[in-house]
């Protein structure tokens, strides 16, 4: 057993899952926004990065790690809600290109602002758990207290989000507003408020992902979420952008694929891992991307 745990194959699975859960979180946050407002939020990563910076400055002032997490999430949610109100709401009913371009512009503003305020040097949030890998009779196991924390937190958040949507009144209203906004309004549901709450939730989930990233080896810098956003988008796209489960599975898949390309093929082509998976997914099942929305508006 112990030798099994320390085999390189198992190492890579742990490593892949550890990054995979981050991608899953980002993908999930993209799906939440997509379902409610049909906007692919290109600033999702940057918003999370920005919120984490604000949380981190509180750590600098001597606040504990968990307060930093809570502050980051809270700031992320406020930022998400305000973004929906100010930048997205005026664009409902406009061509779908408009919100894309606006969010790309917002991404640029946030990254430039972050490097203006906090410089572009990498910082690390003091991790709450040790990053040192466990050993088993002298064999290194690719697991550390931090990796376990990262996975537990990410999976916990996913379960929480799933429970919220599935079992609460708020979740039911969120789902209804996304599925049938007009009918929901006829039933007295405040759809506008639901869209804002959807963005807040999504930005909160994104902020958790960014905090985990900033606590690990990768660290925090203004563009640190760019690559993670791309991986998260690919994960969400594989799952069809509409399916939370698909997004989570897609995230894990990409995490594993990257790890295995890195380990068994060539680290040089690792950046292409996500794209290769997306292309293959498109070739195998192009309609998989569109899931239920098979019919086109004429």
């Amino acid at each position: 057993m112990s030798v099994f745990l320390s085999s390189s194959f198992i190492h890579n699975i742990f490593g892949g899952l550890a990054t995979g859960v981050i991608y899953s979180l980002v993908a999930l946050s993209l799906v939440i926004i997509w379902q409610s407002t049909h906007v692919l939020n290109f600033a999702q990563g940057a918003m999370a990065m920005f919120a984490t910076y604000i949380g981190m400055t509180e750590i600098d002032r001597g606040v504990g790690y968990w307060w930093c997490v809570i502050i980051s999430v809270a700031v992320g949610m406020i930022l998400g809600g305000m973004t929906e109100r100010v930048l997205i709401r005026p664009l409902y009913g406009k061509p779908e290109i408009n919100p894309i371009v606006v969010m790309v512009g917002f991404l640029g503003v946030l990254e430039a602002l972050a490097s203006a305020i906090w410089t572009s040097t990498t910082r690390n949030i003091t991790e709450p758990f040790s990053q040192v890998y466990y050993q088993d009779h002298g064999h290194l196991i690719f697991l550390s207290a931090f990796v376990i924390f990262q996975m537990v937190l990410a999976i916990g958040i996913m379960l929480l989000v799933a429970a919220l949507f599935r079992f609460t009144k708020l979740g039911l209203q969120l789902r209804a507003s996304a599925l049938a906004p007009e009918v929901s309004r006829l039933l007295g549901i405040r759809v506008g408020r639901m869209l804002t709450i959807g963005w807040m939730l999504s930005a909160g989930v994104g902020a958790i992902a960014a905090v985990i990233v900033a606590s690990g080896n990768f660290g925090l810098f203004p563009t640190n979420m760019d690559g993670i956003f791309v991986a998260g988008f690919i994960a969400a796209a594989i799952g069809g952008l509409e399916s939370p489960m698909g997004a989570v599975a897609g995230g894990l898949l990409i995490g594993l694929a990257e790890q295995f390309i890195l380990a068994y093929w060539s680290p040089n082509v690792a950046p292409l891992g996500g794209i290769i998976i997306l292309v293959v997914a498109l070739m195998v099942r192009p309609q998989g991307l569109f899931t239920k929305r098979m019919s086109r508006r004429v």
């Binding site: 779908e96 894309i100 791309v230 988008f233 997306l278 991307l289």
Partner: peptide, 14 residues
């Protein structure tokens, strides 16, 4: 729309 934008973003990021 969004899928294409994301795909091209993935390309330029790689």
């Amino acid at each position: 729309g969004p899928y294409l934008a994301g795909m091209t973003l993935a390309f330029s990021a790689a």
